[in-house]
């Protein structure tokens, strides 16, 4: 009993957040990328997906995967306040993961974007979905973002022309903070945010049970 009480004191207050309605994007390959909110029962698979990338010393996968692992674990064991995670799948296989959290009603914080399946711009679509969640479903006006990789900087800071907010202390530490404002989102949405809703049931069903990637282009010869 005492442990339950202690656990209750450790947990941040739970707040119900609006759901992210699933959507799909037809990729250049013709395959649908289904993007949906991660459920609690998905987290063991998500953690197992991310873990091997924490040792990839290329394109900053090591730091991004390490941090995302901690964030997902934090969400799973109730150590984060108002977090969310979206997962993108191709034929059920985890292709990309994004996460973040609400700061308050008007402001959000983007954490990380991690892509396993490279070459089809899955990461770009997932980041766009994350911004869509903050702006259109959480109804926020600002999302605070940092980049910890060159690819991230090109994709977010430059493609969305994010506003520099050096005085904002992002939770990820010291790298300079940027902000997606509603005006910027509305400007870039037609070019960068895609997706169709509702997802046809037969396509959505492929994403119901997540499948671990059995290969990682980042890890030649990977064997699980």
């Amino acid at each position: 009993m005492i442990l339950d009480e202690l656990e209750a004191r450790l947990r941040p207050p739970a707040r119900t957040m609006p759901p992210y309605p699933p959507k799909y994007i037809v990729l250049a390959s013709g395959q649908p990328l289904v993007i949906r909110q991660a459920r609690r029962d998905d987290f063991p698979i998500l953690l197992e997906t991310v873990e091997p990338l924490a040792r990839v010393r290329k394109d900053f996968y090591d730091i991004v995967a390490s941090r995302m692992y901690a964030e997902l674990l934090g969400q799973y064991i109730h150590r984060l306040l108002d977090p969310y995670c979206l997962v993108g799948t191709i034929n059920g296989v985890v292709a990309s993961i994004v996460n973040g959290r609400m700061i308050d009603e008007r402001r959000g914080m983007s954490y990380h974007t991690l892509t396993v399946h490279r070459g089809l711009r899955c990461g770009a679509h997932m980041f766009a979905a994350k911004m869509e969640y903050h702006m259109e479903h959480l109804g926020q006006d600002e999302v605070f973002i940092v980049a910890e990789s060159f690819i991230g900087f090109k994709r977010w800071m430059i493609e969305y022309q994010l506003e520099s907010r050096p005085d904002f202390q992002h939770e990820l530490g010291g790298v300079p903070s940027y902000c997606l404002t509603r005006a910027l989102y509305d400007t870039y949405k037609p070019r960068l945010v895609a997706g169709t809703r509702p997802v046809p049931p037969e396509i959505l069903a492929t994403a119901d049970t997540l499948i671990l990637p059995d290969e990682y282009p980042q890890i030649p010869g990977f064997k699980r």
């Binding site: 994007i25 390959s29 013709g30 679509h125 766009a128 070019r191 895609a194 282009p217």
Partner: peptide, 22 residues
């Protein structure tokens, strides 16, 4: 360099062509 297939359904007449293949 490129290891991914492309399809007409993705880059030409797909529903999200202008974002996937801008």
């Amino acid at each position: 360099h490129i290891e991914e297939m492309a399809s007409m359904g993705g880059i030409w007449d797909g529903p999200h062509r202008d974002v996937v293949n801008p």
